[in-house]
Amino acid sequence: MDRATSLKRLHFRAHHRGTKEADLLIGGFFDAHGAGWSDEEMTLFEALLEEQDVDIMAWAMGTDVAPEKYAGSILAALKTLNYVPTLS
């Protein structure tokens, strides 16, 4: 699959998680960072999308420790939480 198609697929999966909170957190994270990822980071994010939303959200908020396989730039950026849009 070419890069553009992979990014579109990841975009859809990041924005259609099942709850509004997860859509905002995971989708917002993808929107802020996805375009600049390497192929390896895209593969890691795709694996992350297989995890439960509550786990991903806990890792982002620091209320639980993420598995070592996610350590690195993606998890560090996920923890900043500066990509979550505010609702009015």
Rank of each mutant, 00 (worst) to 15 (best):
M1A: 12
M1R: 07
D2E: 13
R3V: 11
A4E: 14
A4I: 09
T5I: 11
T5R: 13
S6Q: 13
S6Y: 01
L7D: 13
K8A: 15
F12L: 12
R13D: 13
R13W: 11
R13E: 14
R13K: 13
R13F: 13
H15I: 00
H16P: 00
R17V: 06
R17M: 06
G18H: 09
G18M: 08
T19P: 04
T19N: 07
T19W: 04
T19I: 11
E21M: 08
A22K: 04
A22W: 05
A22S: 15
D23E: 14
D23G: 06
D23A: 09
L24S: 11
L24H: 12
L24M: 13
I26Q: 02
G27R: 02
G28K: 06
G28T: 08
F29Y: 15
D31E: 15
A32Y: 09
H33S: 09
H33V: 06
H33K: 14
G34P: 03
G36F: 06
G36I: 05
G36N: 13
W37N: 02
W37E: 02
S38N: 07
S38T: 15
D39I: 08
D39R: 12
E40L: 08
E40C: 01
M42F: 03
T43I: 05
F45I: 08
E46H: 10
E46I: 04
E46K: 08
A47R: 13
A47W: 02
L48C: 09
L48E: 02
L49W: 04
E50S: 10
E50M: 08
E50W: 05
E50Y: 07
E50P: 00
Q52P: 04
D53Y: 03
D53S: 15
V54N: 10
D55H: 11
D55G: 01
I56F: 06
I56N: 05
M57L: 14
M57I: 15
M57F: 02
M57S: 11
A58Y: 07
A58Q: 10
W59F: 11
A60N: 03
A60K: 03
A60Q: 04
A60S: 13
M61I: 03
M61H: 13
M61W: 08
G62Q: 11
T63Y: 09
D64S: 14
D64F: 04
D64Y: 03
V65W: 05
V65E: 15
V65M: 08
V65K: 13
V65D: 13
A66K: 03
A66Y: 01
P67V: 10
P67I: 10
E68W: 03
E68R: 12
K69M: 12
Y70L: 01
A71L: 02
G72T: 05
S73M: 02
S73E: 14
I74A: 01
L75M: 05
L75N: 01
A77M: 06
A77G: 00
A77W: 00
K79R: 15
K79H: 03
T80M: 09
T80Y: 03
T80S: 12
T80V: 11
L81E: 12
Y83C: 05
Y83E: 05
V84Y: 10
L87W: 06
L87D: 07
L87Q: 14
S88Y: 05
